[in-house]
């Protein structure tokens, strides 16, 4: 037992054997799945597989599936990705029908159109398949739960943040999106309701557009030109910053701007000081939380609430680095190293 080299090596080798033995026992009794394991397949139908926010949600769903499979020895969970390439509610509905026919155990869906998807969801539920929505809800359907933003509250937050930057007074414009989008409508209700609490802030114009970077940018430049005394922008979406077009068109610091979303393409606007704050959505959690709640309901038999509100993350120059690293961890590509190191 004296710690000379021979004894020490013996003790070290013994330690290795013990560790290996423990590992073998662990693999035998803990790591391997028993024979009566329950195979569970969850079909994920997001809006568009061309959109990086949904690819991030997919990574979240797969990570949750792996964690849950590791945690519960009687569960073997897999995710089937059945998302259309482009946004298409009819195609989403078809994929839900196909998933039910193929014997999926549950469906999680982000609805491109409420009416089209409500019927598909109800049919799936009628066939005994539980459905949960994330990001974009179908509130009148028979889905058992929804995880996503409270859009009206989001609109209020956009205005509150802008009001704080303006010290409660000034002239602003509000950028909405499509008049037909239900989530945008709710955000606008929130913005305009909150505006009533700030009598010294004047809304000079409310702008709606076709929800593309080009149309949004054009509207922003037009309003700026028409209102030279404009102090700021409340934007319920991040459309003008989905391209680099405005990077050299807007003077940093001239306007106080608060906008929704904080995707990688938008981040240079924070770095340059053009945008003061983005309200980022933790898109990874769309998939992660939805999968966890499905398993709570169908495997663990736990009670699941009808609504789980997604919390927004405020992104400013102070946490640009942290947010960039978080985006990278959530599966987003193309984030410059200089942001990662901030």
């Amino acid at each position: 037992m004296k710690l000379n080299i021979k004894n020490y090596l013996f003790a070290l080798m013994l330690s290795v054997f013990i560790f290996n033995g423990c590992q073998d026992i662990t693999d035998e009794y803990v790591g391997k799945k028993p024979e009566n394991v329950k195979q569970v397949n969850i079909t994920m139908v997001a809006k568009s597989s061309n959109n990086p926010v949904f690819l991030s949600a997919k990574i979240g769903a797969e990570a949750a599936a792996k964690d849950l499979t590791d945690k519960h020895s009687l569960l073997d969970l897999s995710i089937s990705w059945r998302t259309p390439l482009e946004e298409n509610p009819v195609e989403q509905a078809e994929r839900i029908i196909n998933a039910v026919q193929d014997g999926t155990d549950a469906i999680i869906v982000s609805c491109s159109d409420t009416d089209t998807l409500t019927k598909a969801i109800n049919d799936a539920v009628a066939s005994g398949i539980p459905v949960m929505t994330f990001d974009s809800d179908a509130p009148d359907s028979k889905r058992f739960s929804f995880y996503g933003p409270n859009d009206e509250k989001m609109g209020r937050t956009v205005f509150t943040e802008l009001a704080a930057l303006l010290n409660g007074k000034g002239k602003i414009a509000v950028l909405g999106g499509s008049l037909n989008a239900p989530n945008i409508k709710k955000r606008m209700i929130g913005v305009l309701a909150e505006a009533k609490n700030y009598p010294d802030i004047e809304i000079v114009e409310v702008v709606y557009h076709g929800e593309t970077a080009e149309t949004a940018s054009a509207e922003v430049l037009r309003v700026n030109a028409e209102h030279p005394d404009l102090d700021g922008w409340a934007m319920v979406g991040g459309w003008p910053f989905f391209s680099d077009y405005l990077l050299n068109k807007l003077e940093p610091g001239k306007y106080k701007i608060v906008a929704v979303d904080a995707l990688p393409v938008q981040l240079p606007y924070i770095e340059k000081g053009i945008v003061n704050a983005f309200l980022g959505q933790p898109t990874f959690r769309w998939g992660e939380i939805a999968v966890e709640k499905v398993i709570d309901k169908i495997f663990l038999g736990e009670e699941v609430k009808e609504n789980y509100e997604m919390k927004l993350i405020k992104v400013t120059i102070d946490n640009l680095g942290g947010w960039s690293r978080q985006l990278r961890a959530w599966g987003y590509d193309g984030i410059p190293d200089k942001y990662i190191l901030m």
């Binding site: 980022g280 946490n319 640009l320 680095g321 942290g322 947010w323 978080q326 961890a329």
Partner: peptide
């Protein structure tokens, strides 16, 4: 804790 990885640079 709610901010996850998106803490401020000063915090880190």
């Amino acid at each position: 804790v709610d901010l996850g990885g998106a803490q401020s640079a000063a915090t880190f």
